[in-house]
Amino acid sequence: MTEPTRILHVVGAMNRAGTETMLMNLYRKIDRKHIQFDFISFSQQDAHYDSEIKKMGGRVIKLENPQSVKELYHAIKTFGPYQAVHSHTLFHCGMASCAAWLAGVKIRISHAHTTADKSDSFLRKLYQFSMSVMIKRFSTNLLACSKEAATFLFGSNYKSNKHYAYFPNVIDYTDFISQPRQKVMEFKMREGLGNSLVIGHIGRFIGAKNHEFLIEIMKSLVEKEPSIKLLLVGDGDLKHKILEKVQQEGMGDRVHFMGIREDIATILHCMEVFVFPSKYEGLGLVLLEAQACGIPCIVSEAIQPEADIGLGLITQVNLDEGASTWADEILNNAGNKEQDSTFIADHFEKHQYSPSKGIEKLMSLYHLNNGGTYEESINRFV
Results as ranks from 00 to 15, higher is better:
6 R>Y: 03
9 H>Y: 13
17 A>H: 02
19 T>H: 03
23 L>A: 03
26 L>M: 12
33 K>L: 03
36 Q>P: 09
38 D>T: 09
43 S>Q: 05
47 A>E: 06
53 I>T: 02
56 M>Y: 01
56 M>C: 00
57 G>L: 10
57 G>Y: 10
61 I>A: 02
61 I>V: 08
70 K>G: 05
72 L>H: 13
79 F>H: 14
79 F>C: 08
80 G>W: 05
82 Y>C: 12
90 L>Y: 04
91 F>V: 11
95 M>P: 03
104 G>Y: 06
105 V>C: 10
106 K>P: 09
109 I>D: 01
114 T>A: 09
117 D>T: 14
118 K>W: 08
119 S>E: 15
125 K>E: 07
127 Y>K: 12
132 S>M: 13
134 M>Y: 03
135 I>H: 02
140 T>K: 11
140 T>D: 07
143 L>M: 06
146 S>H: 11
151 T>S: 10
151 T>L: 06
152 F>D: 03
158 Y>P: 06
161 N>L: 14
161 N>W: 14
161 N>P: 08
164 Y>K: 09
166 Y>P: 11
172 D>E: 05
179 Q>D: 04
179 Q>E: 15
179 Q>M: 13
181 R>W: 01
183 K>R: 07
187 F>C: 15
197 L>C: 04
202 I>T: 13
204 R>W: 05
206 I>Y: 10
206 I>F: 04
209 K>E: 00
211 H>W: 04
212 E>Y: 10
212 E>F: 01
214 L>T: 09
216 E>H: 11
220 S>Q: 08
221 L>F: 00
229 K>E: 04
230 L>K: 09
235 D>V: 13
238 L>F: 09
239 K>N: 00
245 K>N: 12
248 Q>P: 02
248 Q>S: 12
249 E>C: 15
251 M>C: 08
252 G>M: 06
264 I>S: 06
265 A>S: 14
266 T>Y: 14
267 I>Q: 01
273 V>Q: 11
278 S>R: 00
280 Y>H: 13
281 E>D: 07
285 L>E: 08
288 L>M: 10
290 A>Y: 00
291 Q>M: 12
299 V>C: 15
300 S>A: 04
303 I>H: 00
306 E>G: 06
307 A>P: 07
313 L>G: 01
317 V>A: 06
318 N>S: 07
319 L>V: 09
326 W>N: 07
333 N>T: 02
334 A>T: 04
340 D>F: 01
341 S>T: 15
358 G>L: 00
358 G>C: 06
360 E>H: 08
361 K>E: 02
368 L>Q: 11
372 G>R: 03
377 S>G: 07
